[in-house]
Amino acid sequence: MTHAEIRAAFLHELIGIAPDLDPATIAGDDHLQDDLDLDSMDILSLVTALHDKLGVDVPEADYPQISSLASAVPYLAGKKS
């Protein structure tokens, strides 16, 4: 998967959990919890969806790595390769 495809997949799952978010206005460094108001249940749902759709298991210790779009894309790309 290219970075662009991973970015699109991540955004798709994020919007699935928080349908009120507009993908066009999410900045790369927006923090999922501090800026986009996701709670711990939302993060777990996102990690579950990424596991199902991308086949990437994000262990709890790595949750900070997916705390923004900018950090999540290279992290997930690294796990995919």
């Binding site: 711990s40 777990l44 990690v47 579950t48 596991h51 199902d52 262990p59 709890e60």
Partner: peptide, 14 residues
């Protein structure tokens, strides 16, 4: 508990 569980089976402190 969560260390060796897939995301769908993880527990939250809540």
């Amino acid at each position: 508990l969560n260390a060796d569980r897939p995301p769908s089976e993880r527990i939250l402190p809540g």
